[in-house]
């Protein structure tokens, strides 16, 4: 089985890049063939990646969340999954390149550098933790997606204002759709992060009786939650629209990324191997 896992480990990043390439070919070169094939490529990539997770979990006796490098692969997967879900419900089908390019990089780093440790830390033997992890992955993928759509909004906004009616202008969906996708992704991310925090607070004392609530990871997560709560309140009560929403989603994700990176270095837990 290790042989199959190893083959998939190197094949999957290639598939992700091939998928991003197909989406890119359609977006930048108006390649109709790529337009027809792109969704199939993504479907196959996601399916094989899922199979890879199952086989790897069976072989190594732990789910791939024991280290940041393993998590990068899962985030790449959930980001691509969240994208295909968005593509299906919104019928906006040509922004995949921007999402899948990021997924490809994350999956590649994970495939190349994630260590193959056997066994699972006892701390991970909890249903609450599984719920916590799933919510966290969903939440951060949704925030990433919202930042990508926010960025695309700003790109199109500037192209319209500068009268640059090029290929990118032509192939991007309209501003209202991008704003709606940005907002909905943020909302999904915020709800998921709320679950992460609530479940985390219930699970944390059970797993680490002497944990400090002043830990960088706990504070960082709470800070991110507050940031998005303020953004959503600004939309609701101050009527923030269009460009402001897009900028807030990008700003929120940059802060989230920096905060997570920093707290992962400083934090005393969230290392389970």
């Amino acid at each position: 089985m290790l042989f199959i896992i190893t083959v998939l480990q190197y094949l999957i990043p290639l598939l992700y890049f091939a998928t991003a390439w197909r989406y890119g070919r359609e977006f930048f070169n108006n390649d109709l063939r790529s337009g027809k094939l792109k969704s199939s490529y993504l479907g196959v990539s996601l399916l094989l990646h899922f199979v890879f997770f199952i086989l790897r979990t069976a072989e190594l006796q732990h789910i791939p969340v024991t280290s940041s490098l393993e998590l990068l692969g899962v985030i790449g997967f959930t980001l691509a999954g969240a994208y295909i879900f968005t593509e299906i419900i919104s019928h906006v089908k040509n922004t995949g390149f921007f999402v899948l390019a990021i997924s490809s990089v994350l999956v590649t780093i994970s495939s190349l550098f994630a260590p193959n440790h056997y066994g699972m830390n006892d701390v991970l033997q909890s249903e609450l933790l599984a719920f916590h992890i799933v919510s966290a992955l969903l939440g951060y993928s949704a925030f990433a997606l919202s930042a990508i759509y926010g960025l695309l909004y700003i790109i199109l906004y500037n192209k319209l204002r500068s009268k640059t009616f090029d290929n990118i202008y032509r192939n991007l969906p309209n501003l209202e759709s991008l704003e709606s996708l940005t907002f909905k992704s943020t909302l999904v991310g915020f709800v998921a992060l709320t679950f992460v925090i609530v479940v985390g607070f219930i699970w944390l004392p059970q797993a680490f009786p002497d944990i400090s609530y002043g830990d960088a990871k706990v504070l960082g997560t709470f800070f991110i939650w507050m940031l998005y709560a303020i953004g959503l309140a600004a939309k609701k009560f101050l009527g923030f629209q269009g460009k402001k929403i897009a900028l807030l989603s990008i700003f929120g994700f940059v802060i989230t990324f920096l905060s997570m990176a920093l707290s992962n270095v400083i934090s005393g837990f969230h290392k389970f191997y």
């Binding site: 108006n30 109709l32 199109l156 319209l160 202008y169 032509r170 309209n174 501003l175 209202e176 759709s177 709606s180």
Partner: peptide, 26 residues
Amino acid sequence: TETKINDGAVSVSYAAVELAEKIFDD
């Protein structure tokens, strides 16, 4: 369906509608 021969506004009057479609969804 297989080419983009029919894509985009080619008259100036219709280009205004194309601009509107790039901003608004419905």
